[in-house]
C-alpha cells in the first residue's frame, strides 16, 4: 500500500515536472537561435525534456514491479 502511494506520488511529480518543462517560461529560455550539433536548441531541449518525463514515469511504475 505504501509503495502504491509512493508510485502515485512519483507519477504526479512527473506530471508536474512535465507541466513546467513543456510550457512557458522554460520554453522561452531555450527558444533562442543556438544550435547543438547543428540541431536547433529548442528542438533538442523539448525531446530531451520529453524523454526525461517518460523515463521518470517508467521509473515510477516499473521500479516496484521488481
Amino acid at each position: 500500500m505504501q509503495r502504491r502511494i509512493l508510485a502515485g506520488d512519483r507519477l504526479i511529480a512527473a506530471f508536474l515536472a512535465g507541466c513546467v518543462l513543456f510550457n512557458y517560461p522554460l520554453l522561452a529560455v531555450f527558444d533562442r537561435p543556438t544550435e547543438v550539433f547543428n540541431i536547433p536548441l529548442l528542438y533538442v531541449y523539448i525531446f530531451i525534456a520529453w524523454a526525461f518525463v517518460i523515463a521518470l514515469m517508467a521509473w515510477a511504475v516499473e521500479r516496484r514491479l521488481k
Partner: peptide
C-alpha cells in the same frame, strides 16, 4: 516548426495522471 508537438505532450502529461 515544433508547433506539431504539443498535441503529443498533452497526452504524455495526462498519462502520468492515468494511474489516477
Amino acid at each position: 516548426g515544433i508547433g506539431f508537438l504539443p498535441v503529443y505532450l498533452g497526452p504524455t502529461l495526462v498519462m502520468a495522471l492515468g494511474w489516477i
